[in-house]
Design a protein around this nucleic acid. Structure first.
Lengths: 219, 219
DNA sequence: CATGGGTGTGACCGTTCGGTAACAAATGAC
DNA sequence: GTCATTTGTTACCGAACGGTCACACCCATG
């Protein structure tokens, strides 16, 4: 699971030290994750659960089983940490794309179908939507460093989907890609506002209808 | 010490008082808006521009040309004020629906077309998306009083659009309504993350395509 | 003129926030 | 073992936050 989300056990005088990992068979124990990585992992999770403005650096450090000082040695500011978590999240999205491409190599239609399925599954599982879009909603200040990361990711995501749509040979790949992106973004935010029984439940069907309307058969 | 966070005009000793309204021809002056209404108006605007967590009650009171004490006499807490602004925003949405119904009475297809046009125009104008959905993204704490307001609005919005779709006589009004809602929600959040040149620019076309695919002609 | 309700004012409270200083402890390479 | 780098710990800072207090004020109603 996760590393103690809200460090209840704390009580600084815990005398024994090895509380790093909950399940730690002595000897080979676990992989010994570096503090920096633990911080990023915890930050990703807590930002997602509470929002960027809804969680403090103290809580993040504690969840990462470290302290604020170490956090600030690796990240000059909370904003820096925010940017790093967004970058990591972007990379995870890249991994999904790679997986789809390897599983359905050279079949654009099947890849589009797999994209819809993957995101639909993700929608069922994750109630907090797209971290990148959520960050854009939350951080409205002009010139916030996260904006560059958000823009980079969104441009890349759009380019990937447009290219994929183009490879199906249809007439308006840009329109299809943008339509699918609107449906996805809408489903993810609608799930947060109205739950799974709201309009979000229609996401997969809406995507299939759209693909059909554009002449893309996903077999 | 300094109470005023963004104390722009302030200068408490402004000697002359009538700075309530900028353009105030002496005599009949303006309509004399009550403090409570000024607070709600300012709060709506500031929450929209900076996010709910991004603005403090001091700044809201100051923008409303009043003070924190008066604010707390009308609203027991910041959360109460948040709920009230969401309610007011909901009512404005209701006004748009009423306008559409009066302009195209007894013509469901035309009303659907007008709905798309109105929201598309709104999308061009307003860069901050749907305040209600943004609040849902920002306020993730379970049991937050705003959730009830959000849910009420989203259910009503969905019901109105579904009923309108049903009145066109098509087969799957629920699916059409949900698809349009996903496109709308997606366009509004995408505009915040990727700007007007992003997928949001496709909103109107995607809606028209969807309407056509469902057999709804908006003439 | 008196009175009372709504309003303005500034100080204040306790908490939390992002961020830093100083020093002790652990760790790993040589 | 030595030594330098990386961590952990504790205390602290200034600022901003949500929220309250006591008191002066304005103004309409009687």
């Amino acid at each position: 699971m996760s590393i103690a989300v809200v460090n209840k056990n704390a009580k600084r005088g815990s005398t024994v030290k090895p509380d790093q990992e909950s399940t730690s068979p002595p000897g080979l124990s676990s992989v010994k994750v570096a503090p920096r990585d633990r911080i990023v992992t915890s930050a990703c999770e807590l930002f997602r659960q509470h929002g960027i403005r809804g969680i403090g650096v103290d809580a993040i450090a504690e969840a990462a089983s470290t302290n604020k000082m170490t956090l600030y040695r690796h990240f000059g500011s909370k904003d820096d940490l925010v940017c790093e978590t967004l970058r990591v999240t972007s990379e995870k999205s890249g991994a999904m794309w790679a997986d789809i491409e390897t599983r359905f190599s050279d079949n654009a239609n099947a890849q589009l179908g797999a994209w819809v399925t993957a995101l639909s599954d993700c929608l069922q599982r994750d109630q907090f939507g797209c971290d990148i879009a959520n960050a854009a909603v939350e951080l409205k200040e002009a010139g916030h460093p996260a904006h560059a990361v958000i823009e980079t990711f969104k441009i890349l995501q759009r380019k990937k989907l447009t290219d994929l749509c183009r490879r199906t040979g249809i007439e308006e790949p840009e329109t299809l890609a943008d339509t699918l992106l609107l449906l996805l973004e809408g489903a993810r935010v609608s799930r947060q506002a109205s739950g799974l029984e709201g309009p979000a439940q229609c996401f997969q069907r809406a995507c299939r209808n759209t693909l059909t309307a554009f002449g893309v058969g996903t077999s």
